[in-house]
Nucleic acid binder design. Structure first.
Lengths: 229, 229
DNA sequence: AACCTGCTATGATAATTATCAGAGGATAAT
DNA sequence: ATTATCCTCTGATAATTATCATAGCAGGTT
């Protein structure tokens, strides 16, 4: 049973998300799934879109954002592989409350929402897995949001740099996937002040900057600024 | 079947949360549930507590808060009846990541977590109901957090006043359930500036203040400040 | 080439917000 | 009754952050 062309059984996500879906059900899911790729800057989900699909990330990096009443964008968070970018709205609304945009070459897998809901209704362990995923995702968003809120501009910039260094790239040298303006949209400050603070860090030899390439030279100090600055 | 002393079948929460739990199961749940009352200021859940119980609100008002690294408290959100104050951490961690404190006379119902998890595992529709609840709760937290982040101090104070007026009390005159310091902890400003801004609103005849009693005199203007201030 | 547009950058200045200091009132504790 | 603590309130000043203006540079377009 099941088509031999299904590659889901080799997908890394299988054991994380589909741990409690039976093998023959997985074949079924596999036949129904669609894989899509997006290059940097492309829109994956638009705020207000009806939620008819269930989207999860296989590869790449995206931002979740929301337009505010005055037309400006606010970035809610970033998602990397194994995150389920639909989850935030999918069980509370019939349309997306935020947009999802690729900020790096990104591959997602897509299932029809009614298929996923049917599985969840029939398979409580699968539903529990989803709950755990939602919960972890929102825990992170709320935690980061509180951290950013209590910090001054310098601490916020330090926080963002450490976020990409420690959480996303796990390297001290990386290419910033977002512009200074987007950093500003994430931490709630002006673009000019983001640029200025990065320049200060450079002058203080805490980081090195070559355009979008960042090298963290003094992580201890950056951590200190993030915690108490 | 089921004890006649069970009052759950008359509980308002029944249809919201237990819509998909069968009647005889409800009797079982009823026998296992414990009801507890807290007066204003009393701690219901302490950050770091192991999660062994599942708590939902029957009556009253609570705040969810978190201690930051520098010892100060940050308020995450407020919860009123029909909110499930455990939900935020319960499926992603084995200990609470935040504290819950009564800010008004509050009654909660408590079930052992393993009982709830067992029901969720056996009854996917019940699990789906919980997912929907988690989702709605976090949607609100994230939405409010973004709103607050993009506003200046005056807009933030206006936001809080409208929050209590429109969402919690549904009246233009109400008693603030929290201190100025707690407002500050919620919107990320200093206590002095919260007091100062409230005084300004009073001088501008937007609100009337008698200690903790607030009367919104010019809602239109307050709304305008909240949206664009 | 000439023209946009968006991103990065810096300085000067204005606006916002925090900090520090002091004071009165209410409430609880001894 | 007195002390202590917490909350509210105001003013003065310092620090932080936003706004405005300007400019160089890269990429895309006509």
């Amino acid at each position: 049973m099941g088509s031999t062309s299904c590659t889901c059984e080799y997908c890394q996500l299988k054991n994380i998300f589909f741990a409690h879906v039976k093998s023959h059900e997985l074949d079924n899911i596999c036949d129904l799934k669609v894989e899509r790729s997006y290059s940097k800057g492309e829109s994956i989900i638009q705020e207000g879109d009806p939620i008819t699909e269930f989207v999860y990330m296989k590869k790449g990096l995206v931002k979740l954002s929301k337009a505010s009443i005055d037309g400006k964008d606010q970035i809610i968070s970033f998602s990397k592989p194994f995150d389920f970018v639909s989850l935030l709205s999918v069980f509370s609304s019939d349309q997306y409350k935020y947009s999802v945009t690729a900020i790096d070459q990104t591959t997602v897998c897509i299932l029809q929402l009614d298929v996923v809901k049917k599985y969840a209704e029939e398979n409580a362990l699968f539903a529990m897995d989803m709950m755990s995923n939602i919960s972890q995702m929102t825990d992170k968003i709320i935690h980061d949001s509180l951290e950013i809120k209590r910090k001054h501009l310098k601490g916020r910039i330090a926080h963002v740099l450490l976020y990409f260094s420690d959480y996303i790239y796990k390297k001290d040298e990386f290419e910033l996937p977002i512009s200074r303006r987007e950093i500003a949209e994430y931490i709630g400050m002006t673009t000019e002040n983001v640029i200025r603070t990065l320049s200060e860090f450079r002058k203080d030899k805490i980081i090195k900057i070559f355009g979008k390439d960042i090298l963290i030279a003094d992580k201890k100090r950056l951590k200190n600024i993030s915690d108490f600055g």
